[in-house]
């Protein structure tokens, strides 16, 4: 049996006295893309942070890319995880090209990939513009360029379609197709169900911190 990329078993997260996640069971296998829906405050972002190993659960167990959620081994698999969160992880006073080059240099990618990645996400003409001067959609595209360079095995997209025009939304599809073709996996959160559904293999819903079967329109 193929080992899952992400395997959460009865995972719980509490912030102070408040339970954010409760008994979450979730698996993402190789080549699988899972959609995650839920109301605001249902715990979607927290779940993505647990999957990214950035948050250690207070209950339950599981693994990400073979590393235990609470083990030090999780530090070694982090560079195989790509997370795009609510707030863009860009340095506001650096240009889009400088932001992308910074990442490329840190992961030891050849210099040529920066221009190619920015071109692929449609930012070639804006590459000298500082991140702070760019729209949310452009910042998102710059983050997609980062994923094209790092090519993570597990892609986690929070609010995957927020602020994106049609062309940028196609990039989401391209990135998911790429990760699938490499037997990687992905989990994406989106409130735009009609855009998300064609991209995913299945959808799960988080309701009050627990996973429920999803019924569209419920």
């Amino acid at each position: 049996m193929t080992e899952p990329l992400l395997d959460l078993r009865a995972v719980g997260v509490r912030l102070g006295d408040t339970p954010i996640l409760r008994g979450v069971d979730l698996r993402v296998g190789p080549g699988e893309v899972v959609g995650l829906v839920g109301a605001n405050g249902s715990g979607k972002t927290t779940l993505l942070r647990v999957a990214a190993t950035l948050l250690v659960p207070s209950a339950g167990e599981g693994s990400v890319l073979g590393a235990g959620l609470k083990d030090d081994a999780r530090f070694d698999v982090r560079n195989r995880i790509g997370l795009i969160g609510h707030t863009p992880a860009l340095y506001p006073n650096l240009s889009l090209e400088e932001n992308t080059r910074f990442v490329a240099r840190l992961v030891g990618a050849p210099a040529g990939v920066v221009g190619a990645a920015l071109d692929r996400v449609g930012l070639a003409g804006a590459r000298h513009r500082r991140a702070v001067q760019c729209s949310h959609g452009m910042q998102r595209r710059a983050e997609f360029a980062r994923l094209l360079i790092t090519r993570p095995d597990l892609v986690l997209l929070d609010e995957a379609h927020a602020g994106l025009d049609r062309h940028a939304a196609d990039l989401v599809a391209f990135i998911l197709q790429d990760v699938r073709s490499r037997d990687g996996g992905a989990m994406l959160v989106s409130h735009e169900h009609n855009r998300m559904e064609p991209l995913v293999d299945r959808v799960v819903e988080l309701r009050n911190g627990a996973v429920r079967a999803w019924e569209d329109g419920a």
Binding site: A52, L54, N79, G82, L83, L90, V103, V107
Partner: peptide, 12 residues
Amino acid sequence: GPQQDLLSLLGI
């Protein structure tokens, strides 16, 4: 926060 997360996930 997001920049710190980015550096962590790049394996820095």
